[in-house]
């Protein structure tokens, strides 16, 4: 096989491979484009992505709206989109959705009578743990300093024992 025919052959193989790849690539782009949301103001885009990331899909057990393809998530994303375009604040949008889908959908729950334990218990546990460790360490050092000092009587006893030991 001459160098030239090898070159032609390899070019043909390359071309054949390139066609399906090109088609696939186009398809992937089309699929991706269905999820693109276009905002009138680019600052809304950032808020949209933050909201869909921190709101939870009510149908799925542990997915945010951004990750979920459930029909209800699509409805909620569409609602968030239209409320953002209508100049609603993030808090208004969250309140609107919570009034329908309950606080379950908030990955960052509000601080209220039902959730204060959730919010502050970890801090309490850390403080309690710190207190226990501190107390434990404190009493330990006190105990060891006491035991290090021998009374005169004990010292005499020790000396006697050592003397006896070295005499042997």
């Amino acid at each position: 096989m001459s160098f030239r025919s090898l070159l032609v052959n390899s070019l043909m193989v390359f071309a054949l491979c390139a066609i399906p790849y090109g088609q696939f690539n186009q398809q992937a782009q089309l699929q991706a484009s269905t999820d693109v949301v276009v905002f009138s103001d680019p600052s809304l885009r950032e808020r949209y992505y933050q909201l869909v990331a921190e709101l939870r899909c009510p149908k799925c057990q542990n997915q945010n709206l951004a990750d979920s393809n459930a029909p209800i998530s699509k409805d909620m994303k569409a609602q968030i989109y239209s409320m953002l375009e209508a100049q609603n604040t993030d808090d208004e949008i969250k309140a609107y959705l919570v009034s329908r889908y309950s606080e379950f959908i908030l990955y960052r729950p509000q601080v209220n009578s039902g959730t204060w334990f959730l919010w502050f218990a970890p801090l309490c546990f850390v403080l309690l743990g710190g207190l226990i460790v501190w107390r434990y360490a404190f009493t330990k050092t006190k105990a060891s300093s006491v035991s290090a000092e021998l009374t005169a009587e004990q010292q005499a006893q020790l000396d006697k024992l050592l003397e006896k030991d070295s005499a042997q």
């Binding site: 149908k59 209800i72 609602q79 329908r100 309950s102």
Partner: peptide, 12 residues
């Protein structure tokens, strides 16, 4: 459109 369902908090 599921608009009443949305107001009711219907998930399915």
């Amino acid at each position: 459109q599921g608009s009443l369902g949305f107001d009711l908090g219907v998930t399915g």
